[in-house]
Design a binder for these strands. Sequence first.
RNA 1: GGGGGAGUGUCCCGAGCGGCAAAGGGGACGGACUGUAAAUCCGUUGGCUAAGCCUUCGUUGGUUCGAGUCCAACCUCCCCCA
Length: 418
Amino acid sequence: MTDTPFRSDFLRTIEARGAYQNCTEPEALDALLGNVRVTAYIGFDCTAPSLHIGSLVQIMTLRRFQQAGHKPIVLMGSGTTKVGDPSGKDESRQLLSTEQIEANKKSILRIFERFLTFGDGPTDAVMVDNAEWLDKLEYIPFLRDIGRHFTINKMLTMDSVKLRLERDQSLSFLEFNYMILQAYDFMELYRRYGCRLQCGGSDQWGNIVNGIDLGRRVADAQLFGLTSPLMTTASGAKMGKTAAGAVWLNADMFSPYDYWQYWRNTEDRDVGRFLRLFTDMPSDEIARLEALQGAELNQAKKVLATETTALAHGRTAAEQAAETARRTFEEGAIDEGLPTYEIAAEKLKGLALTSLAQMSGLTASASEARRHIEGGGLRVNDVAVKDVKAVVGASDITGKGVIKLSIGKKKHILVKPV
RNA sequence: GGGGGAGUGUCCCGAGCGGCAAAGGGGACGGACUGUAAAUCCGUUGGCUAAGCCUUCGUUGGUUCGAGUCCAACCUCCCCCA
C-alpha cells in the first residue's frame, strides 16, 4: 500500500480489486501509466496442459491492464519451462520433454483468448514465446554479456534459492539459472516491444527485480515491477485444489459445470474478495452482494459462479451451468446438463451398482463405491443405497430415460442406456 | 576420493522387536448439523469375482516357513572430511 492514492486507472483498479501487493517505484509507474500507453507482460510456464485458477489473478491483471488502455503481452515460457522455476517449490520438478512442453503450450494458449483481445492494434494483446530467444543463446557470450551482472552473493540471498539451501534440499545448477533467464526475458521484451512493466505473483518479486536491474545495466532502461498477493482461501488453503485435482481453466480438463460449482462453493468469508478479484462487476454492486447475510449470501455466490464461468467459458456455458445447478439443487430434478455416461442397455441389466459407479466415473474403483454405500453416501435416483451388492435394472430408469447416481450432495452423474 | 545418514501406503508429513495391508497426523472424501458455506462431531482414505485372494515400503538379487524390517549390489539425496 502506498501513502498517496494512485491516479492512473490501472493501478487504482488493481488496488481496489485487491490484486495489488507490491510495486517498484509506485509514483513513477503511476505517472507513466497516466501519461502514455504502456506495455506490460506476465510470463506463464508450460508445465501442464492447462493453467489453473492459481493463474487467474495474473490473467485478470492483464485483462485490466488492457481495459485501462494499455498493451498486454502474454509470455509463454516454453524456454524457461525447460529449466524449471525453483520459486516456491520444495524440490525440483521432473524435467519435461520439449515435445511435452510444446503440447502444453498449444493447449494453454486457448484460454487467453477468452480474457484478452489479440490483434495488431495499439492496445491489442500479443503472445510471445521466450524459446524464441532463449533457445538460441550461446553459452560464453551469454555469460559475458549477462552473467557478469549477476553476483552469486546476491543470488544466494534470493528466497527461491535461500529456502532450498536452508532446508538442505538440493538445487541444481540448471534451476539456479532460472532467475537469470527470467531477468533476461524482461530485458528482451523491452528491446523488442518496449515492454516496461512485469507483473506477477508475490513469489515472483525477486525474479522481477532482477529483470529491472538487468534492464537498467544493460539496456539503460527504467523498468517496473508489480506483484499481486498470493491467493489462498479464508481458511488458508491454496486456491484451486479439489478432490479431482486442480481447478483447470481448460474446459476439456474441468467442465464449465464443475467450474461453476467450484465458485458456487466459495466460503462465505471469501465471496466479496473473490468477486472483486475474479469478475468485472462494478464495485458498488459487489458491495451490495457481499453485505447479504446468512443464507442470502448464496445469491452472491451464484453471481460469483456465473460471472467467473462466463469469463472462462463464455456466457452461454455459464448460464447453462447455472440452470443445471438450479434444477439439480433447488428443484431436486434431473437435469440433462449433468455429466452423462452412456452405456449399452443390455449391459446394464443386472449390473452391480459398484461396477456401474466405477464405469461411469462416479468413483475411481468399485471398492470406493462399496465404501460409500457402507457409509451411506451413495444414492440412486436420490435414494440412499444400503446394500453393497445392489444391482441396477430397468426399474431404476426414470421417466427421463436415465439413472441418476450421486455421491454426497454435490456429485451427480447420469447413466443413460442406449 | 574417504566417513556418516536417508529413501515407507502414487496427496503430503511420518512411526515401524522378522508375522504387516503396515501406528499417528495433515489434507481429501462421505455421514450428522446447516445455507451446495464455515465450525463441530462421527466414519472412510490399496485392488478384486470380497469371512477369501492379489499387489504395495528407492531398484535388483539373496538369507528365511515368512522380509518394510536381515545381507549384497545398484540408483537418488543429505551431512562431515579431502
